[in-house]
Each structure stands twice: as C-alpha cells, then as structure tokens.
Write a protein that binds this DNA or RNA. Structure first.
Lengths: 211, 211
DNA sequence: TAGATTGTTAATCGATTAACAATC
DNA sequence: TAGATTGTTAATCGATTAACAATC
C-alpha cells in the first residue's frame, strides 16, 4: 500500500491545496506542490500517480478535485474520534490547536488525574478523571489517542486505550510503547529531535527533516 | 558522516544507558539497546561500529564508556544555547520540560509579543520582547532555536534567528521554512503526524514510526 | 569446550531520482 | 508548432537485514 512518506506528503499537499483553493487558484503544477514537502516535482507526480490521480500537461492538476481525492484517502467518511490523555501545558496546547481545525478529526474527550481539571470544559471538550479512560473511550467509540502524560504513566495509559479499542496513538512520552501489531504508534520525541538538531547544527550538515 | 537515523538512535540508546547506569548495570547487550529504538540487535551493533565503539562477545558493551562516547559525539563540549520563540501553551510546555533536563542544551532566552509575558521569568528563563529577538540571540551567541509561534510568523522569526547566527531550528509551525543550506531545520508537524496516525489506524498497517 | 555475542561484509529492500515518450 | 508538463519505467541511492567467522 501507500508508504508512510507518501501519506505524510499527501497531508502536506492538501494543506497547500486548501490555501490555493481559498485564493481561487484552479490548477496547480507538481513543482508548486513540491515546495511544501521540500521535495521534487517528480516525487509529487509519483505520489499522485500512486493514488491514481491524473493531471494534464497543459494545466497541471485540478486543485479541488485533488483535495477531494486526498480527502477520500486520508479522511474516514464519518470522521475519527480522538482522546487526549494529559492536560498539562502540552495537552492544552494540543487541544487548543486542534479545536475546530480538522473537522474529520475531533478530540471528543480529555483525561487527567488532576481533580481541579476534571469535569471542566477545555475548548468545548470535557475532561474526565483518568481512571475512567477505558470506559469512556469504549463508550464513545474512540479510535485514536494522543498521549501527553509523563513517561512513567505512558505505558499504563496505552494499555487502557488499546483495551478500549484505540487503533492509533500519537505518543509524546519519551518511552517506547509496547503495543500489539494492529495498533499504529507515532512517536514524537521532542528531546531526541532537539538533540539531533543540535548535532546537525554543529556538524554543518545541510540535510533537513520533515516529521 | 553519520546519518540522521543513526543520530536519532544514538540519542535513544543514551537515554536507556543513563537509566541502566543509575541501576548500576555495568554492561549491556545489543539486543537490550535495540528495544528503545524498536530496532534490531544488528542495527545497534552497526550503529556502534560506525562510531568506532567496540564491545566484547562475552559481556556486551560497557555502559558508562558507551555513554561517554555518545556524549562526545552528540554534545558540544561547552554546551549549546537555545532560544525559544513563542510562549503559548506549547512554548511553556517546552520550557518546563527542558528545564534542568539536558545540561548541555539550555534554553537561555524566550521571546513573545505578549507584553504581559515580557520581562517575566519562566523556569528561570527570561522572556524578552519579540522585537529584540535578533539582538539578544546575537549577544548571547545562541545557535539553536525552537519556533513555537503561529504559522504566519514563523518565516519572519526564522529569518531573524538566522541573521543572528542560529544554525539549527526545531520548528513546530506548520510551514516549510526557507533557510540557507548551512542551517538545519527539524520540522515537527503535529497535524500532519496526527493525520498519518489516523490513516494507518484505519488501514490496519502494523508499521510504527519514531520521530 | 559449547554457546552466545561481537565486528563486518554481502544481500536485500525500498524509496528517490533520472529519463523520456506522450500530451496538451 | 514549440515548449512545458505529464505518466511511467528504469537506474540510482541509501538504509536495513542476513550471514558468519572471530571472540570471549
């Protein structure tokens, strides 16, 4: 099927396409799309070919048709519900950022152990006590989660989420989660990425990374 | 030189090694280190070989020697100074998290446009007005930066940082920064990664990612 | 010794890049 | 038509994995 890299780039293309659509630009060339992923025109053409989307040599690709195609691939028709675990600074940043941003991806429940946060609303999203994680996630048919808790709690949280039926996890905790094969985990390890940036800033390497 | 993937894994190995050292474990086998990067023992051996670090078939690798070796590679002898631009929820999460965590990587200055934040201390780090970004970064010989501002401001911020001599940027803003070749940019695009997680959660793909 | 692990090379795998006829 | 871009295949590149003699 489609590789991780291709999916990443399609997500970026869609972001640019949406902006172009707002500017009423009808068509786009592969080299224009290439900029947003720091890629090449050939790569864009290959990505779109993989999803069987075709353009014309004269005009390029039709913007809104392409958005529709990417939507069909990336979005679940009925949307996907997300649980956010951990309402510290990071958790609040995430809930604030995603509020109303991607209609097909909605944070429907937040969880924290802090009783001063429990039962309050954060950007329209209710905070539940952490010990109701599994039951609430199960009831609401949540299938995605963002883990923004300290490292020590992450595995425990992941276990509860998976028991509740969660299939994908965005994990900010700097620990390698042990999960069954059918669960997809995307780690975001800020410390590691900062250390890498520090290294390449010194070594003068000119490569760049998208993650 | 060493690839990005290798540097990423060395950072993770060091994290595990530090924990083992605290537990007074003297030696470690490659297959133990492999777990933290979701990698294989062969990969660990190859990574360590690339940095000319050797172990013994009987005991494995010497924990504190290996930490020292990785330190020598990843850390600048005198440390590196970091500027944090943007003190919203995300910025505060970052400054709180890194406070006292990695001695060789210190956030020495924060910047924000919000006058209610300016001149206050955040975890011992002073917040300067955003328009002093270039002058302060230059004076303090800052060579790394974390960008945690809205997308529209990110390019402007990056330009000022680079003019001040910054060589590496950890960029949370969802825009492709245009930078000169000698500057290393590590993007952390949470929206894109969440969309990818949503896709693979549905498609049942069992791969996993470290970023 | 026997057995597990190491260092290192060769084979495999997958993604990117180059190339080019076909198209508008 | 002339020129730029497309779809698609082949070549290149780099990283991972497999293999195995040497080592403790």
């Amino acid at each position: 099927m489609l590789s991780e890299h291709t999916i990443e780039r399609l997500s970026l293309y869609r972001r640019l396409l949406t902006k172009l659509q707002q500017q009423n630009q009808l068509y786009v060339y592969s080299h224009e799309l290439a900029a947003i992923s720091h890629g090449t025109a050939a790569q864009v053409r290959r990505d779109l070919m993989l999803m069987s989307f075709t353009g014309s040599p004269a005009k390029g690709y039709h913007v809104s048709d392409l958005i529709e195609s990417i939507d069909r691939l990336l979005d679940a028709p009925d949307g996907q519900k997300i649980a956010l675990v951990g309402l510290g600074n990071l958790g609040r940043a995430i809930i604030a950022y995603f509020h109303g941003r991607r209609p097909k991806l909605t944070i429907v429940a937040a969880f924290d152990t802090d009783t001063s946060k429990v039962n309050r609303l954060f950007y329209g999203c209710r905070c539940y006590p952490a010990d109701q994680l599994q039951s609430v996630a199960e009831e609401q048919h949540i299938n995605l989660a963002v883990i923004a808790v300290p490292a020590e709690e992450a595995q425990h949280v992941a276990d509860a989420l998976i028991a509740a039926g969660v299939m994908g996890i965005l994990n900010f905790a700097p620990v390698p989660l042990r999960v069954p094969q059918h669960v997809y985990v995307q780690d975001i390890d800020v410390t590691m990425l900062l250390e890498k940036t520090a290294y390449f800033a010194r070594s003068g390497d000119q490569r760049r990374s998208k993650s």
